[in-house]
Design a protein around this nucleic acid. Structure first.
Lengths: 189, 189
DNA sequence: AGGCGAAGAAACCGATCGGTGTATCGCACG
DNA sequence: CGTGCGATACACCGATCGGTTTCTTCGCCT
């Protein structure tokens, strides 16, 4: 069923939404989204019920890949390495010309409504990264794992936002160095 | 000239733009802006030439007050105190129900175009704060003042964005503590 | 008092917004 | 071979977008 040219209408729609919303912001029109996906507006509304729901679904779909991209390939690697890997990845990604920061934070900033379905998805995604930091901080014997995780999130989101807004170039390892300083101070071996 | 009910049309327009854009985002309509300011669209276009220019002017107008608000009242205070004062202010401001983070960073995130007149103003405002950090870092004898200033900006913008997006509560001094750790590591006396 | 310019109100422009209604098409299934 | 459903194309809805035009009103200056 569905026009399976390559992917389902639903998937093409979610991909188009992810790409265009990331590039142009969530204010992008439904018409443009559907045109890009090669799907009729009618199908879009039947599949998702509205722009807000589709936006939320689109963000949700990005979560696993986003997390995987930031996760050190070796689960046994030392906590410090696994944490710093996240910042190294961020720095590498930020070199891309079409890098615009964390898509979840951007969505939260753009739709200022915390009750928006997409906002809740985005919040969940950010909490997931914070939890990952916390877990590694505990594993590494940090003095205050929760505090360290929150500090790392400040640096991660600050670096992402600033690099995305072209306020900062992370090429010299600024984010990694800053995270490393915080790890040192937290006694993370 | 002008209806000087209280302030000039120009000033009322800039204030309305600052308030509404901060609360609802820069996608707010020109109509709503003018209605709020009690100024006709005609006058708006005569005064500023377009929405983009008015938005830029509105942001520019906020710069001095924004800087003043973050600046320690005593210019002779120790650099460490003057730097930490910025983060204390941020934390206090973030408690406000209608806090939505740094208006300049938000504008940069929302209008993704770095060439937008308002984006350039916003970039200037952020550079000004970075310079202030750098100056204090030098005064305090930090090991690498430029690096420290950039690190502090990561924390400042990360904290502002996350608190504004309701991802974090800074009430416990998270930002100040993080900044303090970085100051320690930089050897800032 | 007369007149001039600045500002306001409101209609208007084409385009787009999110969202629907309708009629057609194509394909799988009975 | 139908039949029915899912997807499409496309017109359409009222509202709003940024921006312009017209007309009127009002305040100030000579």
């Amino acid at each position: 069923m569905a026009t399976m040219d390559k992917a389902s209408s639903r998937d093409r729609l979610l991909d188009a939404a992810a790409r265009l919303c990331y590039r142009d912001g969530v204010s992008i029109g439904v018409e443009a989204l559907c045109r890009e996906a090669g799907v009729s507006k009618r199908s879009m509304y039947q599949l998702f019920g509205g722009k807000d729901e589709m936006l939320a679904a689109s963000l949700e779909r990005r979560v696993p890949g986003y997390d995987a991209r930031l996760t050190h390939p070796d689960p046994q690697a030392p906590p410090r390495e696994r944490i710093l890997y996240v910042f190294e990845r961020l720095e590498k990604d930020s070199l891309d010309d079409d890098f615009h920061g964390c898509p979840f934070l951007a969505a939260l900033v753009e739709l200022k409504d915390p009750g928006h379905p997409a906002s809740e998805v985005a919040r969940g995604a950010k909490e997931q990264l914070a939890r990952a930091f916390r877990t590694e901080a505990e594993r590494g014997g940090a003095r205050d794992p929760e505090l360290l995780a929150r500090q790392l999130m400040l640096v991660f989101d600050g670096a992402g936002a600033r690099a995305g807004a072209r306020l900062e170039h992370l090429a010299d390892g600024l984010a990694t160095a800053t995270a490393g300083t915080l790890l040192d101070a937290a006694g993370l071996r």
